[in-house]
Design a protein around this nucleic acid. Sequence first.
DNA 1: CACACCTACTCAACTAATTGACTATGGGGT
DNA 2: ACCCCATAGTCAATTAGTTGAGTAGGTGTG
Lengths: 187, 187
Amino acid sequence: MSLKYAVLAALLEGEASGYELAKVFDVSLANFWPATPQQLYRELERLAQDGLIEARVVQQERRPNKRMFTLTEAGRRDLDTFAAEPPRRPTAIRDELLIKIQAMDGTDPAVTRELIEERRSWSRGKLDRYERVRDRLLGGRTEEDYLRDADRIGPYLTLMAGITFEEENLRWCERVLAILKQRVALG
Amino acid sequence: MSLKYAVLAALLEGEASGYELAKVFDVSLANFWPATPQQLYRELERLAQDGLIEARVVQQERRPNKRMFTLTEAGRRDLDTFAAEPPRRPTAIRDELLIKIQAMDGTDPAVTRELIEERRSWSRGKLDRYERVRDRLLGGRTEEDYLRDADRIGPYLTLMAGITFEEENLRWCERVLAILKQRVALG
DNA sequence: CACACCTACTCAACTAATTGACTATGGGGT
DNA sequence: ACCCCATAGTCAATTAGTTGAGTAGGTGTG
């Protein structure tokens, strides 16, 4: 149900093909609503049938043709209605690593430490990429100026959520590593 | 695939019925691997068939009978193996509210503010509940003592992850509310 | 100049997750 | 007396999400 609105929200950035959307999703929407390309193609089909988006085929010379999608007025209205309603379901996190941590006490601490270190360096990489997205969004302005003047601040606020989430993640990793070190030193 | 190990990890706490597991899941495992009761019953069936858990029927007097499940040695080994391998997929978050925030720029700021305030008070409630779980786990000991002496610290580390996550969430809400206030004051 | 990767998808099969109804008994409140 | 909630589940239907293969030309790399 929500994938529908995630796609409509992505199209607020302007016309896009399924392929382009898949990439946009991968770097931004995926942070709070992941979807595979196949899911997107199916959803786009449905949305076009329901008249919430419009498709036009763009002939290309040295590439396969593509279908570009735009929000219709109906789509925009539907999305605005959705955006004003309280969420139907709370945030859901699925994190395999935390299952492993929950069950870690039967495992060699050195192995667990490695898992946490991997997570930490992954989070660092993610934060770096977020920083670059942030710079692109701000386009030279200070955050203050941007938040005062920009037409759309939604994408920036969700980016902020992603950044604080990864920072938290990093702090948690550091904390766990310190605890594991202590335990190994004593145990 | 991971639900399997989430269930096995839950059974590290000891024997439980499907019904009890559903409740345990709701308050602890659900924080990083949500599952409905129906999912759990099916998974327990499969795990029992695969010999990773054992079921025994407990006759009850004034209640329906129940089946209690315990980890078998095979189950424990399987779980330990899982816990030592790097995760196959990265953390996935699904958060309807963030879709709404992404699309918020067509919405009355006062309505958006309410959504954020709801999230904030929900996070506060969650944090309170986490605090109580924490106190129960520590059982009077200081965190330091607990982390040094306890047999199993996995559940505590995942609880810590939940706590830092909600704290971060709260900070993000405050931040967004401040920004919205600014914007309304100016716009 | 071979080989892998990029664009831009489609199709089919499968597993996982959600929703709602149903069974049956007991206890507490109005 | 009636209704709802708690216990302890089962069953069936539907939707959502995953995986892997296939198509077909173009581009970049050693």
